[in-house]
């Protein structure tokens, strides 16, 4: 397998506050990797730094072998790194289909098109002309994922896609992950919901206070190890 994403020693600051302290991470082609961690562990900051939404000049982020640190967000997106942002953030004046189509503006070649997205999320077909914001939370999340997939990314980053959704809806959304992967798209999910993350991921990284506190395959890690790495205490959860 070839390396898709290689991050070494990544740091991030908000003014005087340091949010990330030298994070290393790798994602191989075809892999599903999950980042777990509690609120404020630096997960979203990590994704935002990767995608160019936060400054990353002078850092070491390689995507498909190319150094992407410091590139503007739109150029990183063109290289095939797309993100489903936290909170979905659909374009409220656009219809479901327009929300999807705007994702394809970069015209990257690949397996994903409108038909494939509707196959993946059949619920959206009947809503295609509705405003994106007139949908249920789960359907909005489907549009947000579809919008990111429409750019045919090599690596799809999902920021807390289960946030604020009912357990049944979360299950539906996560059922799409293996199907996305079957199209050859690698996935990096950020989750607070540990069980979902363990269920879909080949490998997990646990973040705590801006550092990677644990990494491994779901099978190789015990509950205690994860609880310790997640909360910083031995016997919790």
């Amino acid at each position: 397998m070839t390396k898709l994403l290689e991050v070494s020693g990544l740091t991030a600051h908000y003014g005087d506050f340091q949010a990330l302290f030298g994070v290393d991470m790798q994602v191989e082609e075809g892999e599903t990797v999950a980042i777990i961690g509690s609120n404020g562990a630096g997960k979203s900051t990590f994704l935002r730094t990767l995608t160019g939404l936060r400054p990353s000049k002078g850092q070491e982020i390689r995507f498909c072998g190319q150094q992407i640190a410091g590139l503007p967000a739109d150029q990183i997106h063109k290289l095939g790194l797309a993100m489903v942002p936290e909170g979905r953030r659909l374009f409220r004046s656009l219809s479901v289909e327009e929300n999807l189509l705007i994702g394809a503006a970069g015209k990257r070649k690949g397996p994903w098109d409108l038909k494939k997205i509707y196959d993946l999320f059949p619920d959206l077909v009947a809503k295609r002309n509705n405003p994106g914001t007139a949908l249920s939370g789960g359907q909005q999340q489907m549009v947000a994922i579809g919008r990111a997939l429409m750019s045919n990314p090599s690596l799809l980053l999902c920021d807390e896609i289960s946030l604020g959704l009912a357990p049944k809806v979360i299950k539906d959304i996560y059922e799409a992950v293996p199907m996305i992967r079957a199209q050859g798209t690698s996935i990096l999910v950020v989750e607070q919901d540990v069980s979902q993350a363990l269920a879909v991921a080949d490998r997990i990284y646990c973040f705590m206070e801006g550092r990677v506190s644990l990494t491994g395959t779901p099978d190789s890690l015990s509950k205690e190890q994860i609880a310790n790495a997640y909360f910083g205490i031995g016997e919790a959860a």
Binding site: L53, A73, K78, V84, L90, F91, S93, L94, L101, I102
Partner: peptide, 26 residues
């Protein structure tokens, strides 16, 4: 024009526009 969709996207959510590859600054 094709700029219109991008402008509408920026108006609705600048962050989301950036995540779908709109060159918001330019």
């Amino acid at each position: 024009s094709r700029w219109g969709l991008a402008m509408t996207a920026i108006r609705d959510s600048e962050l989301a526009a950036e995540t779908v590859g709109v060159s918001t600054r330019r």
